[in-house]
Simulated scan of single mutants.
Amino acid sequence: MNINNIAKEVFEIESQEIARLSDLLTEDFSKAIDAVYNAKGKFIISGMGKSGIIGKKIAATLASTGTPSFFLHPGEAYHGDLGMIEKDDIVLLISNSGETDEVLKLIPFLKSQENIVIAMSGKPQSTLANNSNFHLNVSVENEACPLQLAPMSSTTATLVMGDAIAAALMKLRDFKDSDFAQFHPGGSLGRRLLTKIKDVMKKDNLPICSQDSKVKDIIHTITAGKCGLVVVMEENIIKGIITDGDIRRVMEDQEENFFKLDAKAIMSSSPKQISADSRLIEASDIMSEKKINSLLVVNKNSELCGIVQMYDLGI
C-alpha cells in the first residue's frame, strides 16, 4: 500500500469538487452578498456537527475581515440563545443534507422575526433550501472518504464557499491590510502592519562620518555603531552609505591603496530611505525587493533620524 498515493487521491478528489463549485453558483450568491453588505445587523452562522466546525471558521474569517459575525450553536440557540439574534441580523444556516433537525428548528423563529436566512447545503431541494431567502449549493459528487461516509469533500466545499463570501465582502468594503491589522494587533502580523518605523529604529549614537573620513576611522565607526554600516553626511545632508560588505570588497579590489581611501571613494550614493512614520511592513517590502538589510530613516524634512534593520522588524 502506497500511503502517498492515498494522500494524492484525496487531493485530487477534493480539488475536483472545489472546481465544480463554480458551476453551481447562481444569482443567489450575489444576492446574498448584497444583503450581508447592506445589512444593519450582524452576520450569524449556525450549523451542527462538522458543519458547525466549518461554520465557526467562516464566522472567524468574516469577523477578522470587516463583517461583524459570530457562530451560534443551533442546540444552544433552541434552548435560550435565540435572544442573541436581532431583527436586523442575517443568519447563515449550514447543513449538508439540508435536513438537520437542530438547524431546521431555528427556522420558525427566524421567519417570525423576519430575518434574512441564507442556506448552505448540498441539496437544493431540501427543507432548509426551500425555507431560506438564498441558497448556496455546496453539493459534491464524491467524498474523499474511502467509505464515502465521513464528510471530507463536502466540508471542504463548505469552507471554500465561506471563503468566497468573505473575499467578496472584503472587495466590496475595500478592506485593506491596515484594516486587517486593526483586528490582529497581536503577534508578528499586527506588529508588521501597525508598528511604525520610529518605534523600532536605532536613533541614538548613529554611525556617521564625513566624505573626507579615512578607511581606518570608517572601520572604527562601523564597529562602534553596531549596525554594520556608516552613514556619510555633509552639513546634515545624507551623501551616501558604506557597509561592512563595501569595506571588504574595496579591500580586495584596492589592497595597495586601501588605507589611503576616503569615504567619498567608497560610499554608495543615494542609499535607500524610509519615513519615520512608515510602518514595518513597508520597510519589509523595500528590503525584500532591494535585497538589503538596512534602511536610513528620515523625518519630514528628509533629515536623518535613525536606522532600521531587518532584525528590528521582528520577522
Rank of each mutant, 00 (worst) to 15 (best):
Lys57Thr: 03
Glu14Val: 14
Thr156Tyr: 02
Asn293Tyr: 09
Asp89Thr: 05
Met48Ile: 14
Ala166Asp: 08
Leu82Met: 14
Phe43Asn: 00
Glu86Thr: 13
Pro108Ala: 00
Lys214Asp: 09
Ile45Ala: 10
Val91Ser: 04
Leu280His: 02
Ala32Met: 04
Glu99Gly: 12
Ser126Gly: 02
Ala59Ile: 06
Leu229Met: 15
Ala166Asn: 07
Glu12Val: 02
Lys42Gln: 11
Ser97Leu: 04
Lys291Asn: 15
Ser15Asp: 02
Leu261Trp: 02
Thr195Leu: 12
Pro124Leu: 10
Lys216Tyr: 12
Leu172Ala: 12
Cys209Gly: 08
Val230His: 06
Val215Tyr: 03
Glu27Trp: 00
Ala7His: 08
Gly187Asp: 06
Asp88Lys: 12
Ala63Asn: 13
Phe71Leu: 10
Glu141Ser: 14
Pro124Met: 09
Ile247Ser: 08
Lys214Thr: 03
Glu234Leu: 13
Ile33Ser: 06
Phe183Trp: 13
Leu296Met: 12
Thr67Ser: 14
Thr26Pro: 03
Ile237Met: 09
Ile118Ser: 04
Leu296Ala: 08
Ile33Val: 15
Pro271Gln: 08
Ser132Met: 04
Met287Cys: 11
Glu143Gln: 07
Leu304Tyr: 01
Leu24Thr: 08
Phe258Tyr: 14
Ser302Tyr: 12
Leu62Val: 04
Ala224Ser: 14
Gly98Cys: 04
Met1Pro: 05
Lys226Thr: 10
Glu255Tyr: 13
Val160Glu: 02
Lys40Pro: 00
Asp28Met: 09
Ile90Met: 05
Asp212His: 10
Ile274Gln: 11
Ile13Ser: 10
Arg249Trp: 02
Lys171Cys: 05
Glu252Ser: 15
Asp244Ala: 02
Gln148Ile: 06
Ser210Cys: 05
Tyr311Arg: 10
Thr127Ile: 10
Lys50Thr: 04
Leu128Cys: 07
Ser284Trp: 04
Glu289Cys: 04
Lys290Thr: 00
Phe259Glu: 11
Asp23Leu: 12
Ala119Val: 00
Asp285Ser: 13
Thr67Glu: 09
Thr221Gly: 00
Ile266Asp: 08
Ile53Trp: 01
Val140Asp: 04
Asp262Leu: 01
Glu76Ser: 02
Ser270Met: 07
Asp217Gln: 09
Ala60Lys: 08
Ala129Asn: 05
Ser269Ile: 15
Phe180Pro: 04
Asp177Gly: 00
Asp88Glu: 15
Met161Tyr: 01
Ala59Leu: 10
Glu17Trp: 10
